[in-house]
Design a protein around this nucleic acid. Structure first.
Lengths: 137, 137
DNA sequence: TGATAAACCTAGTAATTCTATGGGTAATAT
DNA sequence: ATATTACCCATAGAATTACTAGGTTTATCA
């Protein structure tokens, strides 16, 4: 498993925002109910998205969140990397991993590196807008 | 993370066997010491490999394990799928996953399917022999 | 035949990560 | 003022992963 619930929730939320009026601020409660996701859990995800400048937030009554850019300007990779921390296929190659003592002689290392690049290219090549279009079906 | 310690250990063990005399039976203890992996943990992995017919086992003194086929006849995918159970990028697409209630309307489903296929093709296109050759560097 | 060495089996525990909850604080509109 | 909303921090519950323990069976060799 390379993408956990957290990352998938983040995608669903972003898709949900992308499908609405881009000007309007939507309270998280509305999204949580619609998507049947724990609001509290979503809050922690939104905070990350907000700090990274992916969404714009307004406090108080009438406030909520909205996207900061157009859907086509968000790659799936950027959203997932932010929320998952890393998309590495293997802990050895994850950033911040305590360097494996076998790195030098590891027969598999080149394979993991190649896979990581492939996965990264894949996710960087898809945008939020692509998901909306259903163009991948 | 798509491949856990278990799958990586399995690969290392298989590589280790592939690098030795293919006729000789090697006791697991030897591999465990060499690779600095818990022997007991390795045992559980070897049982899986043995039951699947990936390795041949002989009990008792002078016994051990050896590969059943040539290194080029094992795909990395077959080894990982066996030990990891699934290589799905997301729990939604993993076999045996309780069907997601959103499958029908999920915007991301086609993307996950495409990714799964890409990963599967990747691992099925590499064999144990390829890892030995260092040809990927 | 007895000692030894190996695979095999079952169960349980430790450790880690993931998911979610709880309770509060700060900001904003009405 | 009050209601509503984002934001913050800590913690608990759940699930998975990694590993350990102890024994049983099978085979070899002296």
């Amino acid at each position: 498993m390379i993408v956990s619930t957290k990352g998938r929730y983040a995608l669903r939320v972003m898709v949900s925002f992308a499908q609405r009026d881009s000007e309007e601020y939507i309270p998280l409660k509305e999204i949580a109910v619609e998507e049947e996701i724990s609001q509290k859990y979503l809050e922690s995800i939104m905070t990350v998205l907000s700090k990274a400048g992916f969404v714009d937030a307004v406090h108080g009554k009438g406030g909520g969140y909205r996207l900061n850019r157009k859907p086509e300007e968000y790659t799936i990779g950027s959203i997932l990397k932010l929320t998952e921390g890393s998309l590495a296929a293997v802990s050895c190659t994850a950033q911040g991993a305590s360097a494996c003592s076998r790195t030098e002689c590891c027969q598999a290392k080149p394979m993991w590196d190649k896979l990581d690049k492939m996965i990264d290219d894949f996710f960087e090549g898809i945008t939020l807008a692509d998901l909306l279009k259903d163009s991948m079906k």
